[in-house]
Design a protein around this nucleic acid. Structure first.
Lengths: 155, 155
DNA sequence: CCTTTTCGTCAACAAGGTTGACCATTTATA
DNA sequence: TATAAATGGTCAACCTTGTTGACGAAAAGG
């Protein structure tokens, strides 16, 4: 590897590590029979987990345009992971919430994710994982005025 | 933020941090007058820095198909960042190397990158940055049989 | 010499992003 | 109260970067 002898850029390590988790996640999902899950779905699952949302709000949470949000929601709706309904209080608005299948998928995702993070704990120690979490949190918050930024599924 | 009170998934923190570096990189490049640099170019610059390569080898280094590699090289070639020439020893092969403008871009990239990493050192301490580098390296190598994997520009 | 493999390019399609446009609905203003 | 402005969601075109399949030229193998 041409990086031998030179420190590997941290950005590269961050991306490799992230990919490790995400690719591992999607592989395990496939092994469990989830064959139609796209990378972006995870972002939508997390955004709609704690409370229903709307298309345009989801766009804001994801840091993308409303068109992009709609574009992810379309196949998710078609596959039965989310439901969209007209808001009784504002006829322009579509309420977006997880459908039963979406809840099942979310449960599978969270279970696999916990396994993956536990594997990191086994590899470098739980304390090191928590320290990394602490440091990354500091960096991200410091750079975003004390808040977590919206994070796009794809650059 | 709905993540308040729950640990933010490490995957999310990794992605946020990575984006912080990469988005910061591209913003500063634009500020310096580099207006036509796409995210994928950085990967090609690093892959061709230490020695010239070939289209198909680049594909392998990037972990993408040869078609995808060619597709990134086309605009880079057109913009004068790389040069492609026929290999005198094998007429099928295109040698890919950085052109003068590519070297200038690489220099700008590396300079900005150093600034960005130094800012992390200022935020959490240089020792913490190095510790993170060490831990991430361990995780990545452990998961890839002791080697660094190819890393695609885009999932 | 013929078959198989390899390299790079062309083409079509996909995922997920952008901008612009449009219509319906709601809110704000005169 | 009527009109203007703002908002939500969808349609459309295009972009970046990925995939697969196909193809012709060149090289390697039998």
């Amino acid at each position: 590897m041409s990086e031998r002898g030179k420190p590997v850029p941290l950005a590269r390590l961050l991306l490799m590590s992230y990919r490790l988790l995400i690719d591992g996640m999607h592989q395990r999902l496939r092994e469990e029979g989830w064959h139609d899950v796209r990378p972006a779905y995870g972002f939508v699952l997390l955004a709609t987990r704690d409370r229903s949302t709307t298309s345009v709000e989801l766009a804001s949470l994801l840091g993308v345009t409303k068109q992009a949000a709609s574009k992810i929601l379309d196949p998710m709706d078609a596959a039965g992971y989310v439901r969209r309904s007209v808001d009784p209080e504002d006829a322009r608005v579509k309420i977006v919430e997880l459908a039963p299948r979406g809840w099942e998928l979310l449960a599978a995702v969270e279970c696999i994710y916990a396994e993956l993070e536990a594997e990191w704990g086994a590899a470098i120690g739980v304390a090191a994982v928590e320290l990394m979490r602490k440091h990354l949190t500091e960096i991200v918050l410091a750079a975003n005025g004390g808040e977590f930024p919206a994070i796009r599924p794809s650059p």
